[in-house]
């Protein structure tokens, strides 16, 4: 098995790339689905970071803190699932109202 601790920068670099793709997607995609996928990518980048940083806490296993990162990543996954449900519902309502999911067309927030 790979030594997670020694490869932490690699994990972080990957997480960074993932987050960057996510944010670029969220900011630039015209489709609401694309934006939603970008958000998913960002969430997963965050979850990966949690797991990666958990390896730094090996020395304090005895105190029972050795699973915090993993548990948090599980929370993130659950949250992502809920968000997917809510977001898809919103996308469906937008499509139902105006037959398109183009983000540039949804400008009701305009002041």
């Amino acid at each position: 098995m790979m030594n997670l601790a020694s490869n932490l920068p690699a994990f972080l670099a990957f997480s960074f790339l993932l987050f960057s793709f996510g944010i670029v997607a969220a900011l630039s995609r015209k489709s609401a689905i694309g934006v939603f996928m970008g958000v998913e990518l960002m969430l997963n980048a965050a979850a990966l970071n949690f797991v990666a940083f958990q390896t730094l806490r090996r020395g304090v296993v005895e105190n029972g803190h050795w699973l915090h990162g993993h548990i948090f990543s599980l929370f993130v996954i659950i949250l992502a699932a809920i968000e997917a449900a809510v977001a898809l519902a919103i996308v469906l309502r937008i499509f139902g109202n105006r037959q398109t999911i183009d983000m540039d067309r949804a400008t009701e927030l305009k002041g």
Partner: peptide, 9 residues
């Protein structure tokens, strides 16, 4: 204030 969520983000 163009109402586009992406711009706000």
């Amino acid at each position: 204030q163009n109402g586009k969520v992406q711009r706000y983000l």
